[in-house]
Write a protein that binds this DNA or RNA. Sequence first.
DNA 1: TGATATACGACTATTTTAGTCCTATTTAAT
DNA 2: ATTAAATAGGACTAAAATAGTCGTATATCA
Lengths: 135, 135
Amino acid sequence: MLKLSKKTEYAFMAARYLALNNSGHYSTAKEIAENYDISHQLVAKVLQVLKKNNIAASFQGVKGGYVLNKKPDEITLYDIIIAVEEKYKLTNCMHDEPTEESCSHIEGCRIRDPLAGIQKKIDNVFINTSLKQIL
Amino acid sequence: MLKLSKKTEYAFMAARYLALNNSGHYSTAKEIAENYDISHQLVAKVLQVLKKNNIAASFQGVKGGYVLNKKPDEITLYDIIIAVEEKYKLTNCMHDEPTEESCSHIEGCRIRDPLAGIQKKIDNVFINTSLKQIL
DNA sequence: TGATATACGACTATTTTAGTCCTATTTAAT
DNA sequence: ATTAAATAGGACTAAAATAGTCGTATATCA
Ligand code: SF4
Ligand code: SF4
């Protein structure tokens, strides 16, 4: 309930690592995994997603790895969350255009609008926190 | 990921209903369930918890039911969440005193403190929204 | 005494999250 | 050329959290 997924935590960690190690060489998934003591493969996937969303840039091959694509103060935690979590929303009905599919109670529901307001405020918490602030 | 549980949604709905129907008679779980088209039993449980936490008062028997224990502007969404969700926290390590039990990565983790700050901000979103504001 | 309500524990099913495994491709160094 | 180290990414499994049901006890009114 209102918990951050490990995926997001790993993305924060990885981005943080890249921000702190921007000197010349590319940082690898393995390197990051060992530094934070987390699964190599999970970090690898998260990095791939960060790359896809232009938060990081990647280089393949033996001396390959990742670097950040922007300055740490230009990347918000919101950017990272949105990149990594397809389902970041307080309720199901906030994803697609609301239908019976997304929530069977949508008909009689009277808390949708207030919750949308809450959602915005929570979004803002993450929008207003840059990667730089968690270094 | 950062989703409200149905339990919490039902608690919001139930509290809202009680706030809007405070005229004399006690509101029953069945009544609320029908009004919002949700499971009778789930609402019942949620109401029991609200009672336990002094957000609502209950009366047993044939003409029994529930009423709010405070005015809608004296009840925050945070109160309701805390009542209903034992595990409302961004990360596992924020629950008990952090040990290896709560998170195996706690040793090398460098994002715990920043996340604690985020947690407070999110708490404040719910603390600063009263039941009255979602009527 | 029957009907209707709260109270509450145990259980099941479903969904989401976390994590692993496997294979392909790219590239630097030997 | 070959090998080793890296990204890229799909398929799969395991574990945990969520959602929902069932059954039974107790209280109260008519
Ligand atoms: S219950 Fe209401 S708020 Fe919750 S998902 Fe359904 S429509 Fe949205
Ligand atoms: S990874 Fe860090 S922040 Fe996340 S639960 Fe473990 S200690 Fe807490």
